[in-house]
């Protein structure tokens, strides 16, 4: 389990992470979602003891990372696949990591096998494609067979096959009961990978919920209603506590109600309906709506 408590990071006057608290539970993939520059990577570096928090703390199974005696046995992390010496072979890279945490050399072969790099283990890591580098980074993360895994934007720049491979891999890791935290700025990707979401914007926590809840809530579940008797239906819906907005061409947009509820109300009161259709916003729209105010670098679109 990962537990962040009031985590804050300031660079001079810029606040990168602002009083962030969340927990990551074992047994499922937790998505760490936010626009670029929201503070995801900074938070991950603080979780791993690379950056020192200005305030607050973050615990892994109750301990700060820097107090773990052989950390690779507890936590595996892939923050950047390019953190390798280009003239060092993949095997040598894993070998020194294994040695540093007292892991046997057969773990090196095992993780190379697991990510499918056995054939190129003797090649220099500098010559690897992005997909291969990513696999090497995952191999390094798995080296100590850790209970907790962190991945920072693992699918960035990968082809569809690589994306699918990583997605399945992470879900399998979680199914084995491990704690998996994956950051991304793409909600669509997270919707497919993660069952739990921690959403941040401008360094602040926006929400933590299950992915389904997040999608349902943020897409708003509005229902479009067209009827020649809107004047009659409108007040009835308002009485029930639903929000009714005027739409185009004599239509209503009702939020907070399902189409079933509206249909029942209409029938009970003898209101004729010409259209009753649930509207689902796209995930991207929902995400934009939630984080819109919290984007660090704005560019006006189409103005």
């Amino acid at each position: 389990m990962i537990e962040a408590i009031g985590l804050t990071k300031r660079y001079g006057r810029t606040v990168a992470v602002d009083d962030l608290s969340f927990t990551v539970q074992p047994g499922r993939v937790t998505g760490f979602l936010g626009p670029n520059g929201a503070g995801k990577s900074t938070t991950m570096r603080m979780i791993l003891g690379l950056d020192r928090p200005t305030a607050g703390r973050v615990l892994i199974d109750g301990k700060p990372y820097t107090e773990l005696s052989r950390p690779l046995r507890t936590v595996g992390a892939l923050l950047d696949a390019k953190w390798v010496h280009p003239n060092r072979s993949a095997r040598a890279h894993l070998r020194w990591l294994a040695k540093s945490n007292g892991l046997p050399n057969n773990r090196v072969d095992a993780v190379l096998e697991a990510v499918g790099l056995t054939g190129v283990a003797g090649k220099n890591a500098g010559g690897f494609s992005l997909g291969m580098s990513q696999r090497l980074g995952i191999a390094a993360a798995l080296l100590g067979d850790p209970k907790v895994l962190l991945f920072d934007e693992p699918v960035n720049g990968l082809d569809p096959e690589g994306i699918l491979w990583i997605r399945t891999f992470m879900q399998n890791l979680a199914a084995e009961g491990r704690t998996v935290l994956v950051s991304s700025h793409l909600l669509s990707e997270m919707a497919l990978t993660a069952s739990e979401l921690v959403v941040i914007g401008k360094g602040k926590l926006i929400t933590q919920s299950t992915t389904q809840e997040f999608i349902d809530r943020s897409t708003g579940n509005s229902v479009l209603v067209r009827s020649p008797q809107l004047f009659k239906l409108g007040p009835l819906l308002v009485d029930k506590g639903f929000t009714v907005r005027d739409g185009a061409d004599g239509s209503f947009s009702v939020s907070g109600a399902t189409s079933d509820q509206i249909g029942d109300i209409a029938a009970a009161n003898g209101v004729v309906l010409h259209e009753l259709s649930p509207q689902r916003g796209s995930l991207e729209e929902a995400f934009m709506q939630l984080t819109g105010d919290a984007v660090e670098y704005h560019a006006e679109i189409g103005k």
């Binding site: 791993l48 003891g49 690379l50 990372y65 820097t66 107090e67 773990l68 950390p71 690779l72 992390a77 923050l79 950047d80 953190w83 390798v84 990591l97 540093s100 945490n101 390094a140």
Partner: peptide
């Protein structure tokens, strides 16, 4: 960074 991850 990999070094400091392995040896905090």
């Amino acid at each position: 960074r990999s070094t400091f991850l392995a040896v905090p």
